[in-house]
C-alpha cells in the first residue's frame, strides 16, 4: 500500500489543461498551492482555504470541486482543468468569458476564476438552466464587489447562445 511520508517531497504528475505536468509535493500541500507555487499557474485563486468562498474551484476529471480541499498528491494521474484552460491558446476568450465581459460580471476578479470553472461544469451538464438553478450553483461562491446579477445574466446568456448556435 503506497505510503507517502510526511515532511518528504513526492513526485506528482497529472494532466493540467490537456498538458502533462509534474512537480514535487509534501503530502500536506494543497492542490491550490501546488498549482500556484510549484507549477506556476496562478489563475486559480486562494481565498478562505476551508471550502466556503469558492475562489479556488477547479474541475477534477470534469467535476467542479474546491482546489483548497484537495491535496496535490491526490490528483496524481488525474485530469485537472483550471481557468487557464477555458480560452483558446491564441488568447481568445471562451463564450462564457465573453459573456462575463459583456455583462459586467466581474470587477476585481478575485472570485471570477472559481465561478467560471463552476459554470463551465454546470452549463456542460445543464445546457438550458433556469435562473434559480444558476443562482443555486452560485450560492457556492462569494463575490463581494459586483453582486451576482451580472454573473447570472452572463450564465443564462451563454446557455442561450449555446442553444442558438
Amino acid at each position: 500500500m503506497p505510503r507517502l511520508k510526511a515532511g518528504q517531497r513526492h513526485e506528482v504528475a497529472f494532466t493540467l489543461n490537456g498538458v502533462a505536468v509534474r512537480g514535487e509535493a509534501e503530502p500536506r500541500m494543497l492542490l491550490t498551492d501546488f498549482l500556484r507555487h510549484v507549477i506556476g499557474v496562478t489563475g486559480t485563486h486562494v481565498g478562505c482555504e476551508h471550502g466556503v468562498c469558492g475562489a479556488c474551484t477547479i474541475r477534477l476529471d470534469g467535476v467542479a470541486t474546491r482546489g483548497c480541499l484537495l491535496f496535490a498528491v491526490q490528483v496524481a494521474g488525474r485530469d485537472v482543468k483550471t481557468v487557464e484552460g477555458l480560452g483558446g491558446s491564441d488568447g481568445r476568450l471562451s463564450p462564457l468569458q465573453e459573456a462575463f465581459r459583456r455583462n459586467h460580471a466581474l470587477q476585481c476578479g478575485f472570485c471570477t476564476a472559481g465561478i467560471l470553472m463552476s459554470l463551465d461544469d454546470f452549463l456542460e451538464k445543464n445546457p438550458s438552466p433556469t435562473e434559480p438553478e444558476v443562482r443555486e450553483v452560485l450560492s457556492g461562491h462569494l463575490c463581494r464587489c459586483t453582486g451576482y446579477t451580472g454573473i447570472v445574466r452572463a450564465a443564462l446568456e451563454t446557455a442561450k447562445g449555446n442553444a442558438d448556435a
Binding site: M1, P2, R3, L4, A6, P27, R28, H50, V73
Partner: peptide
C-alpha cells in the same frame, strides 16, 4: 491555514484501510 504534516496512505482495498487503522 495549512495542515500540519501527515503521511498519506492511498488504500487499495477496505482490508488495507482497516490494517492501517
Amino acid at each position: 491555514m495549512k495542515p500540519a504534516p501527515f503521511d498519506y496512505i492511498r488504500a487499495g482495498s477496505v482490508d488495507e484501510s482497516l490494517d492501517a487503522l
